[in-house]
């Protein structure tokens, strides 16, 4: 009758979510924007996303083998990175460039630091920045409905020929830009899902977007809508500036992070040589994340120590 019972420490119940369910939720929240991209830019989008995902998993598995560790791709974080990377590329990107970007994202963005949880920079943006610098021509060619058109940001910044889409198409997303970043409405659906699932702090993306909108209002008031609704702002603010690993942990810190990103984005957009600055601004803010954490430590409950 003697039966052995398990001894373990409290708490004896745990919440159901794990790293993989959290990553999966984020991937689910990205699906609407992906479906939109397929509708706007055609079937090629599916290929870009698929190649990116396969390459990412293969790269992670490759590093796992080199380090003789258990395969870690089951936590879906590499899939999420791959999807985010592909969303920042134009629909005309050659597949071999997608491959390289995915490899760089996973290996140099994440695995060299020790895998998920240890990377200082957002891996998808590391890959994106690498491609931006190495292949500016190949990933700077935007097509919609078979017609090559510059992105709204390039048109307004460099006074290129072409028409800036009206507000409705800016919100819906059927204009030329990178494939996952065009539709504000579909990205907001993902935002609401993430907030509902409590995976992101709701004010963090808003502080980023509001800062950009505010600065644009002062610098180029006639272009507020284009600068807010086009470009990678919503994609970056909702899915990259809220990446848990590389952003501050405190609520206050997250808002400061968003404001910093907004200021840097505007600086690059108005006075830098690139039309878009979301990618670099988030990477730069990733650098100061530990510092923000240090300065925004949460106030403890009852923090006025009494003398006894």
């Amino acid at each position: 009758m003697e039966q052995n019972f398990i001894i373990s420490a409290a708490p004896h119940i745990k919440a159901k979510h794990t790293i993989s369910t959290m990553m999966m939720d984020t991937i689910i929240s990205l699906i609407p924007a992906g479906v939109g991209a397929v509708i706007f830019f055609g079937q090629r989008v599916v290929w870009i996303i698929t190649v990116s995902i396969i390459c990412a998993i293969a790269s992670e598995y490759f590093v796992n083998m080199l380090r003789k560790q258990e395969p870690t791709f089951k936590d879906f974080s590499s899939v999420l990175t791959a999807v985010l990377l592909s969303y920042t590329l134009p629909s005309t990107t050659p597949l071999w460039i997608v491959c390289i970007g995915s490899f760089v994202s996973i290996v140099f963005g994440k695995m060299v630091y020790g895998g998920v949880g240890y990377n200082p920079f957002n891996p998808a943006l590391v890959g994106r920045a690498f491609l931006q610098i190495s292949f500016p021509k190949e990933i700077g060619y935007f097509v919609i409905d078979g017609i090559s058109t510059a992105t709204p940001l390039s048109i307004t910044k460099f006074n290129l020929s072409g028409t800036v889409p009206d507000t409705i198409s800016l919100l819906v997303g059927n204009y030329s830009s990178s494939l996952g970043e065009t539709s504000v409405i579909l990205l907001l659906v993902g935002y609401l899902y993430l907030v509902y699932k409590k995976h992101i702090y709701p004010l963090a993306p808003l502080s980023f977007i509001a800062t950009v909108a505010l600065i644009t209002l002062f610098v180029k008031p006639e272009n507020v809508l284009v600068y807010t609704f086009s470009g990678g702002l919503f994609l970056g603010a909702i899915f990259m500036a809220t990446d848990p690993v590389t952003t501050p942990v405190t609520p206050k810190g997250k808002i400061i992070f968003g404001i910093g990103c907004g200021i840097l984005t505007s600086l690059i957009r108005f006075w830098g040589s690139y039309p878009e600055g979301v990618c670099f601004s988030i990477l730069l803010m990733n650098l100061v994340t530990p510092m923000i954490d240090n300065f925004t430590i949460v106030r403890k409950f009852g923090e006025i120590r009494i003398s006894r």
Binding site: M22, G115, G117, K198, H199, Y201, P244, T250
Partner: peptide, 8 residues
Amino acid sequence: GPCIRCSK
């Protein structure tokens, strides 16, 4: 696993 700083 490792802390992913989700801040929950």
